[in-house]
Nucleic acid binder design. Structure first.
Lengths: 234, 234
DNA sequence: ACAATAATCTAACAATCATTAGATTGTTAT
DNA sequence: ATAACAATCTAATGATTGTTAGATTATTGT
């Protein structure tokens, strides 16, 4: 059904083998990206790096794995050229190579959500109680925030806010929120966001804020979903 | 740095473990997609299925692997819910679950091309000789084809053309092309395409056409890149 | 009923991968 | 220098894969 080359020349067999090999090579290269994305821990590392550059130590702590294991996983990500490193004193700082990597993380996640019922169920379970903002309210939300009619609140660690944040967002990290409630205007609605739909910080923030009598909403998206790239600290 | 829950309640530890587990579960689900995409052969199967539904036998032949191995790989793809099956007599027909799967195939491939120099080099080597059409000529090409000023030629097997093809394209499978040259208008430029940038059929067609005195160009994109979904035969 | 075909299932092997522990490198501070 | 630290490298392990062969299940045609 498919001869890729003309079957008459004496070079045909060699050429066929050759083109087979080249073709296989192409798929092998793409599979390198797939291989980088086939481990849950590596995906978690990618998500964290989408928030901004981090040291191995920080990444290990935030993914709850040993530094050795984190280092090994990061090695794999670097082998696929998805992350880059820079030595800063005793630390090695990892960062995402590209905005394309963040886009891919959003893309594979959305395919998984489209295809895997289990994922949708798990997300619903996490999501159900606090009322959410629809993800298509983007422009509307920015307008409201610009006019000061809502407070967009970034509850991630301060370093991540510094690396990248949503337009007009204010930073109060989740573990400082209880002490810093006074900084928030009493009447206005607070829209909290964090690292993205798999992160629990904004949910917890909304719970806390409502307990304390605020009007609070949860925005399930983060900087990666909005296509905002973190900047280098150096 | 990050306590996800309030550290006072006696339920905290259990809740933390619980949310850890739920969170890990999310990344595990996404990793199922990565796992499906971490084998070159599986990627090749996805690309073929993007052209239209096919039996296991056909898929095995076209990827040059045994039916047993093809069956095993397809099993993996089905476990990730990326493909669906339907029994037709003695055959089992596989098809892509969704257009989202084809989009993902294009997305992972484009990230690989962005990040991996090796892939770019291999593609250049394949591509260099026949002059190519820039991929952004889409609308222009369709207009020219509509007016009949160029002939857009689909050189894939007839069944794939039947499942989906580019607008205004004519079908002459690569292995019938030599005998059917008379069907092509002599003066007009022929724009040949096949399964996509990793497929050699259009290149070979362009080589043949030029040998025979035609003006021929190679379009590296196929139906998956144009976002055209194959239709069911049943 | 029987043989032929398409596809899967099972079991088995080798190859690869995740994870851990121990030793090693490079950097900073004393 | 020396100690402390961040990170990597090098095995070594156990678990998961890719791949193949052999037996098994449907389906079709005779």
């Amino acid at each position: 059904m498919e001869k890729l080359t003309c079957p008459s020349s004496p070079l045909t067999l060699a050429a066929m083998n050759d083109s087979r090999r080249t073709k296989d090579l192409l798929y092998e290269q793409v599979a390198r990206i797939g291989k980088a994305a086939c481990s849950p821990k590596r995906l978690e590392l990618i998500e964290l790096l989408c928030q901004g550059e981090k040291s191995v130590e920080t990444l290990a702590r935030e993914t709850a794995i040993s530094m050795k294991l984190a280092s090994a996983h990061l090695r794999e990500l670097r082998a696929a050229h998805l992350v880059e490193t820079e030595k800063q004193g005793k630390n090695v700082i990892y960062r995402i190579a590209n905005r394309a990597v963040a886009d891919f993380w959003v893309a594979i996640r959305s395919l998984a959500e489209d295809r895997l019922v289990e994922l949708r169920l798990a997300l619903e379970q996490m999501t159900s109680h606090p009322k959410e903002l629809a993800p298509q309210d983007r422009d509307g939300l920015v307008k409201l925030a610009k006019k000061g009619e809502v407070v967009v609140l970034d509850v991630r660690p301060a370093t991540e806010y510094a690396a990248a944040h949503l337009p007009f967002a204010r930073s109060i990290p989740i573990d400082e929120l209880r002490q810093r409630l006074a900084e928030l205007p009493a009447g206005k609605t607070v829209v909290a966001y964090c690292r993205g739909p798999y992160c629990l910080m904004a949910r917890d923030a909304v719970d806390l804020l409502r307990q304390e009598g605020f009007k609070a909403l949860h925005l399930p998206e983060g900087v990666a979903e909005w296509g905002i790239s973190p900047v280098r600290s150096t």
